[in-house]
């Protein structure tokens, strides 16, 4: 398996406060990588550095190399806007655009590149809502506001919206932490399906979730990458003491 993403010596700061120290990690193509660790360990910052969203926060900065298919996303010629079209992102709390309908939310990213007729909008909405396993629940109310859905449905709507841009990588920042158990199960199931086509990176503080859905797991602690290995190994036979303490629930 080739590496879709390769991170070399990545460090990040909020103002003068360091958030990540010298991270080196590589994620294989078409797999799920889980990022685990206690809150404040830098796992969100890490994924936000991958699609260069970190730098949009006032005062935030980063240094290092992130290679997407061998191309450094931090090299001067790179446009972060184009980068983000190849890396979709799903946030902790579902955030559909409140002024748009369900269908408009799905195609929000596509509308940017070209105009779409009404039938095209519906066609695309159907395609990606099906991919996000939401179609059956919303097919009769495509023109209702996106905010009218339940939390779990909103999150899958946001996944459909991210997929519609046709990214190659999906970044998910605790995508299920604000959802009920049934919705969580649906989202997890969805990620297992999507793995066939996408490289997925999931931040989670839920270790069972990491164990269930990921191929590889990275454990972060106070801004450092402590251990990175096959998920089975991390959860059954970690090589570092801190990892073992964390996955067995002894701290954090």
């Amino acid at each position: 398996m080739t590496d879709k993403l390769k991170v070399e010596a990545l460090s990040a700061w909020f103002g003068n406060n360091p958030a990540l120290y010298d991270i080196n990690i590589a994620m294989p193509e078409k797999s799920v990588t889980a990022i685990i660790g206690p809150s404040g360990c830098g796992k969100s910052t890490f994924v936000r550095c991958l699609n260069r969203l970190h730098e949009e926060v006032p005062g935030a900065s980063s240094r290092g190399i992130v290679l997407l298919d061998g191309e450094d996303v931090y090299s001067p010629g790179v446009d972060p806007v184009l980068l983000r079209r190849r890396m979709g992102m799903i946030f902790q709390k579902p955030n559909p655009f409140p002024t748009m309908s369900i269908a408009q939310n799905v195609v929000a990213g596509i509308l940017l590149e070209r105009r779409m007729s009404k039938s095209e909008v519906e066609e695309s909405a159907e395609k990606y809502l099906k991919l996000a396993a939401l179609w059956d629940e919303v097919k009769d109310k495509l023109h209702k506001p996106g905010m009218s859905l339940s939390g779990g449905q909103q999150q899958r709507l946001c996944i459909a919206r991210a997929l519609a841009v046709e990214p190659e990588v999906l970044l998910a920042d605790e995508p299920a932490s604000a959802l009920d158990p049934i919705s969580t199960a649906k989202v997890e199931e969805l990620f297992m399906d999507l793995k066939e086509r996408y490289t997925i990176i999931v931040v989670t503080h839920n270790m069972q979730q990491a164990a269930r859905i990921s191929d590889k797991t990275a454990f972060f602690l106070t801004g450092k990458l402590v251990e990175y290995d096959a998920t089975a190994k991390i959860f059954t036979n970690p090589s570092r003491k801190e990892t073992e303490d964390y996955v067995t629930g002894r701290f954090g």
Binding site: N51, L53, E56, V81, L82, L83, R84, R85, R86, M87, G88, M89, F91, K93, N95, P96, F97, P98, A108, G109, L112, C158, R161, A162, V165, L171
Partner: peptide, 11 residues
């Protein structure tokens, strides 16, 4: 979060 959702879509 809405601004970030939009930026993350490559807008």
């Amino acid at each position: 979060t809405l601004r970030e959702a939009s930026l993350a879509l490559g807008i």
